[in-house]
Amino acid sequence: MSALQVQAGELLASGKAEVVIGYGEGTRGRVRPVFVRTRADVSLLVFDGRCTANLTVYLAKPEVGRMGKAAIVATPGAVRSLIQLIAEHQVDPGEVVVLAADDDAVTLLTDPAALEAYAAAHPVTIPPEAKAVTESLARMSAQERRAFWDAELSRCFKCYACRSACALCYCTRCITDMNQPQWVCVAPHALGVMEWHLNRAMHMAGRCVQCGSCTSACPAGIPIGLLAMEASRSVEKEFGAQAGLRCDAPPALSSFAADDRESFIL
């Protein structure tokens, strides 16, 4: 039994968790989310380099909530999103037990301080492909960047896999689904697609923990996470705020500090 399986088993046996949300073997050599409720089933749990999806997204799902207290197998990205969810009052600290997994090590995190210490020590790794695209985008003119995104977004059919896979897209009714007034065009035409993704990027600015789940979820292969990543980079530059590091730090763009830079005010 792996260290992860042992720890998960103990949590279930002691009642500290009623369900362990982790990764299990899926089809075609992929891993998938599994919900382990009995000690006998901990053998389903795996953790390796394939485990990148951010499982904290399931904490907002009512069917999962009804399973009782959850323990969650978390990558460094997922730990950050949990911290961010706590900071945004979506998850109570202590409500979720975290089995932070990174390569072979499993660390049990049960309080905000432990989560923060873990996040500080475990940077999120940006996949090399994403890095390469970011670098090439940085070298482009604004016009070229626009052409790049127009081409990429032309494949978007608004299945909202990006939103569904995002732990921080927890709104019960997304702004794109509001119709009084209709802020965002429903249609997946060029304008409607651009409106949706710019809205999401702006809503993620300073909140995105760069876990990469939205990009991996996209069935059309659009590197959509780069938009929120870039928006978050701007927030970091302007306000020195990075998402997912402190459980008591409200999102930079929805809070105010007297010494905030005001360079954006014309």
């Binding site: 989310p33 599994v34 069917e63 999962v64 608004k158 299945c159 909202y160 896999a161 569904s164 069935p219």
Partner: peptide
């Protein structure tokens, strides 16, 4: 159905492809 759908994220990827 409950267990079968537990990990479904509720996006439209399957329907749209």
């Amino acid at each position: 159905w409950k267990d079968a759908s537990l990990r479904c994220l509720g996006c439209g990827a399957c329907a749209y492809v």
